[in-house]
């Protein structure tokens, strides 16, 4: 079994993170696995973790009454799933489901927030990794929302 710190260090999200910080972060992590079709998290439940996907793909879904689940994003190996752990009230906004068998590293949000509060340089290092991803996803979501391929384009 690969030690968790090695998995964290090898994941693109944490590329370049100093070794001491990798150990701090890895101390909040655990390997997790989800079968195809299984929920990684559900809308409205506590956002108590975030995930680094190692294998498989995860779909983010909104449930539309009368229409069922609608997928608006899929994420795969090398990508991060979950940002609601960063902001209050720490509740998931959407469903996340494993499209196929998923293996990931899950990080305990309370543990990690505590370490970030105790060591703001760690918090800053994490924010420098999260913010570009969130901004890129926001820009992509806006382009999606514009429905550019529709009739009016």
């Amino acid at each position: 079994m690969t030690p968790l710190a090695d998995l964290v260090r090898a994941h693109p999200f944490f590329a370049g993170l100093p070794a001491g910080m990798v150990d701090l972060v890895a101390g909040c992590g655990a390997n997790v696995a989800y079968p195809a079709g299984g929920y990684v998290f559900r809308e409205g439940r506590p956002a108590d973790r975030f995930f680094l996907v190692r294998h498989g793909r995860v779909s983010l879904e909104a449930f539309l009454p009368g229409r069922g689940p609608r997928v608006f994003q899929t994420l795969g190996p090398g990508e991060v799933v979950g940002a609601s752990w960063l902001v209050e009230p720490h509740l998931w906004s959407w469903d996340a489901r494993a499209l196929d068998a998923v293996r990931a590293v899950a990080f305990d949000a309370v543990c990690l927030r505590g370490k970030c509060d105790a060591d703001p340089t760690l918090g800053y290092a994490l924010m420098k990794r999260f913010v570009p991803i969130l901004v890129a996803r926001l820009q992509e979501a806006r382009l999606q929302a514009l429905d550019l391929y529709g009739r009016a384009s």
Binding site: E61, G68, P69, V71, F72, Q73, T74, L99, E140, Q144
Partner: peptide, 12 residues
């Protein structure tokens, strides 16, 4: 850009 439950490919 969007898919209902049956799609197995990428969304985004």
């Amino acid at each position: 850009d969007y898919a209902d439950g049956g799609w197995r490919g990428r969304v985004g």
